[in-house]
Design a protein around this nucleic acid. Structure first.
Length: 551
RNA sequence: GACGAGGUAGCUCAGUUGGUUUAGAGCGGUCGUCUCAUAAGCGACAGGUCGAGGGUUCGAGUCCCUCUCUCGUCACCA
């Protein structure tokens, strides 16, 4: 058991509504690609995530619809599980935050934090709706802004004059659940995680990661510069994990304070079920393990400050996040925001009705917003799928395989591979590896595409279809083989087909540079089908038409 | 509002700590071309005031200031 231990943690989708494509690409899909990549390299990989079942919105939405939060959460969870299957996202443990393991683990962790002196109580007046008998989050209160008289100012901020507000300042505050204004401010006790006390340790942890870049670095640095404050980890809600503190009966642990802990409990649950609970420590108590977190930029602070803060507070020696691979936002056409209520954008369940999931995977990762926000476009989709994946990469494979069948009886000749081909393949593998190890994926796809360009150019220039040039095909095959391995983490089902045609089995990363002479191929089969983008658009329009009518 | 991050050819992006005279790729577009491959492949060309203005410097896309646009955070939304 000396392989590298890699733990991939994808941010937990909120089990309240179906994810859109932007949610998918940054969290679960990226995680899946990383998982497959590291496994290809022979690492010991565990990938965990799950549905975030609790939360204010779920509970409030349940109140509004008159059903239980559980019902919403489980229904959504089941739908998400189906979507993951549909996108070929397959991890060690996709669970929920409503499991017994998670409840126990979270409560234990917070008891440990309390015993270590990191939990402090605080009494505070908070808005309470007497109709719904529930404490209201600031954003669930509306009223007239005391500054600009805008009538629908939120409890924390006025959307009109953008003043920051306290809920008490609103004139005629109303509950947005029942619409009534029977709001009183009642004293209630909250328990806070003392992040101020944890600050020196967190600072040390963050300073230990000079490789963090971009938003991850900036957000985190900013948080520390502003100084950390104790932050409430309990809520006056019913649906959630009962808070385990003295006198905290009837309150739950707040979602942000428990969802991330799910990374740990989900790993534990996985190894418990597997019957090898001792292996948990190989991932969570092992300083040599590498932990990769995939999420959207809105979650950065949770992964670099709050979550490590909790782990530190427990003083159990848990491994802290190493790589925080955060993406910017994928937006809808023209920079519009995805919105279920306004029926804008494509949601994951709809996406699967529209197109081959391999194509979605390839497109989404190739436009993965790693540097800045990015808008969906049909043109980009067309280019990524048809121009790059189909015409450039897969057609090259098909081209070379057909030639080998025609010219050398389906056998790769046992001759030397051209030096520049060897060098190009090796250089690409190296670059891809550097990119992925550093938390990038879109750039890796660009490198892979470049190798295919090189391959096509090579074949074109050396004309292996002419008599006497058959030896060239061995080099061309070498490129195709490398391509097939490199695309595997991105489009596993497509790679499977290519492996079959190339007659490769139990493929690992090493296959990229392995030299094969005298290797027989299998009969060719269609490797791809062109995507008809106009037809796809038409079906999308029809789908939207239908869901507008249903709404 | 405060703070932070970004605005490079139609699109997606590269551009080390400022310096090979005409700012680079890929895709798209235009033209040409091979024929092994799913009208795929290859080559050539197309010229973007590097968001706007000012400054520092022998020299700035690369540093500083101002402005503008986009995005994010601002701690009971996650």
């Amino acid at each position: 058991m000396s392989e590298r231990k890699i733990l991939i943690c994808s941010a937990w989708p909120y089990a309240y509504d179906m994810m859109h494509l932007g949610n998918l690409v940054g969290c679960l899909l990226s995680g899946d690609v990383f998982e497959r990549y590291y496994r290809l390299k022979g690492c010991d990989v565990v990938h965990v995530s799950g549905s975030d079942m609790h939360g204010t919105r779920t509970e409030f939405e349940a109140l509004r619809r008159g059903i239980s939060p559980e019902e919403i959460a489980y229904k959504t969870h089941e739908a998400i599980v189906e979507v993951l299957k549909g996108f070929h996202i397959d991890m060690e443990n996709y669970t929920t935050t409503a499991t017994e393991t998670h409840y126990e683990f979270t409560q234990n962790l917070y008891r440990q934090a309390e015993a270590n002196g990191y939990i402090i109580p605080l009494d505070e007046k908070r808005a309470f709706c007497e109709v719904d008998e529930i404490f209201l989050a600031d954003s669930f209160i509306e009223g007239t802004c005391p500054k600009c008289q805008f009538e629908r100012a939120k409890g924390n901020q006025c959307d009109n004059c953008s003043s920051l507000l306290e809920p008490e300042q609103l004139i005629e505050p109303k509950c947005t659940i029942c619409g009534q204004s029977q709001i009183v401010f009642k004293e209630t006790r909250a328990w806070l995680l003392d992040l101020a006390k944890l600050e020196p340790k967190l600072r040390e942890y963050v300073e230990g990661h000079p490789e963090w870049e971009g938003n991850v670095k900036h957000f985190t640095k900013q948080m520390l510069e502003d100084g950390l404050q104790p932050r409430a980890v309990t809520r006056d809600l019913k649906w959630g994990i009962p808070a385990p503190f003295e006198g905290s009966e009837g309150k739950v642990i707040y979602v942000w304070a428990e969802a991330a802990i799910g990374y740990v409990s989900a790993t534990k649950e996985y190894f418990d079920k597997l019957g090898t609970p001792e292996r948990f420590d190989e991932f969570w108590k092992n300083p040599d393990a590498k932990h990769v977190y995939t999420q959207g930029k809105d979650n950065i602070a949770f992964h670099t400050i709050f979550f490590p803060g909790q782990l530190l507070a427990s003083e159990q020696g848990y491994h802290l996040p190493d790589q925080v691979s955060a993406v910017e936002y994928l937006q809808w056409i023209g920079g519009a925001k995805f919105s279920k209520t306004n029926n804008v954008g494509i949601f994951c369940d709809e996406a699967l009705e529209l197109m081959d999931p391999s194509y979605w995977r390839w497109y989404l990762i190739s436009v993965r917003p790693e540097r800045r926000d990015l808008a969906f476009s049909w043109e980009d989709l067309d280019m990524a799928v048809n121009a790059t994946l189909n015409n450039n990469i897969l057609n090259l494979v098909n081209r070379v395989v057909s030639l080998i069948h025609k010219k050398t009886d389906g056998k790769v000749l046992d001759v030397e591979i051209e030096a520049d081909v060897l060098a190009q393949v090796e250089a690409t593998a190296k670059k891809v590896d550097e990119i992925v190890e550093a938390g990038g994926l879109a750039a890796a796809i660009r490198e892979i595409s470049n190798l295919a360009l090189f391959g096509n150019e090579f074949v074109q220039n050396r004309e292996p279809w002419k008599e006497g040039n058959e030896n060239i095909l061995t080099s061309a095959f070498h490129v195709c083989k490398a391509l097939s391995v490199l695309i595997q983490p991105f489009v596993p089902r497509v790679a499977e087909k290519v492996f079959r045609v190339l007659n490769l089995k139990d493929v690992t990363f090493d296959e990229i540079t392995t030299i094969r002479g005298g290797h027989p191929l299998n009969p060719t089969e269609p490797l791809f089908e062109k995507l008809d983008i106009d037809e796809l658009k038409a079906r999308y329009e029809a789908l939207k038409e239908k869901s507008t009518q249903n709404a």
